[in-house]
Design a protein around this nucleic acid. Structure first.
Lengths: 225, 225
DNA sequence: CACACTTTGTGCGTCGGTTCACAAAGGGAT
DNA sequence: ATCCCTTTGTGAACCGACGCACAAAGTGTG
């Protein structure tokens, strides 16, 4: 099932996919500074990873490097972009225009990577109709219509926890298969749908765990049973 | 994100630590609904994981279940909270009060888990002095003083990318060893410092990759899961 | 051309994490 | 007390990811 001669093997490991955006960011910075070629070592340092890992990651896309020289920055940017699907334009809808939704709508990092916020949707009549980041906030009743009319393929959920599953069900029903979930709930979706979750409070809790370890040290080990 | 094994981890795997907050959230929901005991199967479903994994995770904390019965919800909440260090109060400083920083300051999920936003800090004179979420925004010049005065042990970086490393160096210099970074840069810190990063644009890029693969056709559907 | 030097691409040992499957342990009924 | 039923806790196989270390492949120089 995995042929070594196949130049663009689609069996790219998930761990690799998660790092490609990192490499892309580093490469963009280098391109801006006029760097034409880069070695795996330098790129690895810029991306904060091991150089062997970086080379193995890139080898999954094909043999785009030159031994003795390194990688052509422009070319690599193009190859990674294409692999990630960033050469096309992705229409994103943000559902839930609270503090977080607003921040996301204004976040520059999206547009600069081929993502276009195509719709803002909320249930609160107080917010509906407002202009945020140059977009008109639409009512949740229009959810399905807006998604289909604007060709939205990725939905960002920034609703309260209680509303998330219901909205999720509706967007899945109209064919959306990629969801970025900021609501602190476990969404239940069909296997065919990709959900990535970002939970700010969970990240802090993980930090707290390690911080406690550092601060408490051996003292805690005694207290535990 | 780096996750070096800490010397005093009492042997709890990093992957387990990352899931404990998930279990905790599910358990809180159950406690609210008056559920006294729960089986690993039910809790696993609520947290969206495999039940064997859940049992193994919990077994790292100790033997807190009763065979034939399940786990006592209240007791488990307490044990996990203690393990994560949530029984104490953590003072958090948010540096960078743009759209994202503002959203974080108002985010309810923090306070409800033992985290207290103790300071908001920004460089923009336009913002300094404003009241946000009941807090006065302070100037970046006061960074070190504020951190020490308020006993801040976790810093959230929500600054522009260009400023992040400099702020990071300063907070590390005053002894902060836990950082949650929202800026799209790879922070360079001593090994003793924990950095967790959240990059919204990277999450979208990963979704785009899978979305593209789904749209690609039946050839890829074979290898997709 | 031959040789020295650089850097990629990868085989392979290792390790952490996931999952299965089951023995051990507890509760309840008779 | 004994038997049956439920559910935990874990041994062990499996799987993917990581990183070392090196052969292969390219550049440059004399």
């Amino acid at each position: 099932m995995k042929s070594p001669s196949h130049p663009r093997d689609r069996g790219i490991p998930e761990a690799t996919v998660a790092r490609l955006p990192l490499y892309l960011r580093a490469l963009h910075g280098m391109a801006e500074r006029g760097i034409a070629t880069v070695s795996s070592e330098d790129l690895a340092v810029a991306a904060g990873v091991n150089s062997a890992k970086l080379r193995k990651d890139l080898s999954h896309l094909g043999s785009y490097g030159t031994r003795g020289v390194g990688y052509d920055v422009e070319y690599l940017v193009y190859q990674i972009s294409r692999e990630l699907g960033l050469t096309q334009d992705w229409a994103v809808a943000i559902v839930g225009v609270g503090n977080l939704g607003r921040a996301l709508a204004n976040y520059g990092g999206f547009v600069s990577r081929g993502f276009r916020v195509a719709a803002l949707i909320d249930a609160d009549p107080e917010v509906v109709g407002d202009d945020i980041a140059g977009l008109n906030v639409e009512h949740i009743d229009e959810l399905e219509a807006v998604i289909q009319r604007r060709g939205v393929s990725i939905v960002v959920l920034a609703t309260p926890a209680a509303a998330a599953q219901k909205v999720c069900d509706r967007v899945v029903a109209v064919g959306v298969t990629s969801i970025l979930n900021f609501a602190p709930v476990v969404l239940s979706v069909p296997d065919s749908v990709d959900v990535r979750k970002v939970d700010l409070s969970i990240e802090l809790q993980i930090l707290a765990f390690h911080e406690q370890r550092k601060a408490g040290g051996p003292l805690m080990a005694v207290e535990s049973q």
